[in-house]
Design a binder for these strands. Structure first.
Lengths: 183, 183
DNA sequence: ACTTATTACTCAAGAACTTGAGTATTCATA
DNA sequence: TATGAATACTCAAGTTCTTGAGTAATAAGT
């Protein structure tokens, strides 16, 4: 009960291959649940064997054949069941935060460099998520879109990701400022 | 390389027993890295066997004897090494976010109930972190404290946690609003 | 013709984490 | 004086995730 449901939820947006999902889980939907491609492929196979998704081969022009998947009825039912029972608490796991916690006992220069790198990542992820949100809104105003659309789930989830990246950016900048002021 | 360094970093604040860390990792420092008590105990034993921390028994009045740990020189060195090499990307893993992503395909009432619960949790965690921050500042102004103190690491890390909880709260309230407006 | 990059996916070993059950001590409360 | 709650910790089994090394097909540059 883990990546499994994230994959199932991602497939609500339409059929996708392991490769496509692998990229999404490293990027856009990485806000949702991050995973290595290998694990995504493994989960797809497990889900298919359990009858929760169904795959079909799609030959492509100029590329290897891929296998794309859609949830089955059982898959939708499983997702509904999952959504209804109690959620595990969110997992916060970030090496950088641990390093900052130990800031007073470790090399500041390297820490600052890593905070700068993270700040840059957060800035670009925030920008990417802005584009994703814009594409989802498809011209409409946010309030209007959220009132009327039938696909608010991905929008709300991306909003959360966007907020998170914005926050991370602010925090990194503040931490850099503090650490630099100490010499 | 995981909970290991979070435990090591947590021990910078002074000696602690597995039980004490277990509580911290479920609550205050849970922002830093969450873990079950069993895993914390296991890590403490591994760290001790590796010579990165040293434990001693502390008999207590009216309670079972506990074992408290402090980092050794090797432990400090390991933490420095860890802080210097490249961080893994942060892990985002939250069942509730997956459920919201699937909002359009699952029962809204249960989702709203779970969002309310999470909102309440975030509100109380934010309040708790405010107290922790206040205690760390110990009367000083934030700017003053961050400029002068020798223990900014935990402060910066708790700040991040505080921001995260605040954000989570806002997001939950917004998501509830949107989902309720759809009936 | 050769290398490199991208797409597309698999296998296997091991590390990290969760779950569930259990031990033992002391204090409070009924 | 039994019962429950909190402290303090262990063991074992299982799941989940990471790491590293592959295979194979096509395209694009050198």
């Amino acid at each position: 009960m883990a990546l499994r449901h994230a994959v199932l939820a991602a497939l609500l947006d339409g059929e996708a291959s392991g490769y496509e999902l692998g990229k999404r889980f490293d990027r856009g939907v990485g806000e949702l649940w991050n995973a290595r491609p290998q694990q995504v492929y493994a989960e797809l196979n497990t889900l298919e064997r359990s009858g929760l998704i169904r795959g079909r081969e799609v030959p492509q022009q100029g590329r290897p054949t891929k296998r794309v998947f859609v949830p089955t009825e059982a898959g939708y039912a499983e997702l509904a069941r999952f959504a209804a029972d109690s959620a595990r608490p969110a997992a916060h796991r970030d090496d950088l935060l641990v390093k900052v916690y130990a800031a007073d006992a470790v090399d500041a220069a390297s820490l600052i460099a890593q905070l700068r790198e993270r700040a840059a990542q957060s800035r670009s992820r925030a920008a990417m998520l802005d584009k994703v949100l814009e594409r989802l809104r498809d011209g409409a105003e946010e309030t209007e879109f959220l009132g009327g659309s039938s696909r608010v789930g991905p929008y709300l989830a991306c909003m959360r990701g966007r907020m998170f990246e914005q926050d991370t950016l602010h925090w990194c900048l503040r931490a850099i400022e503090v650490l630099e002021a100490r010499g």
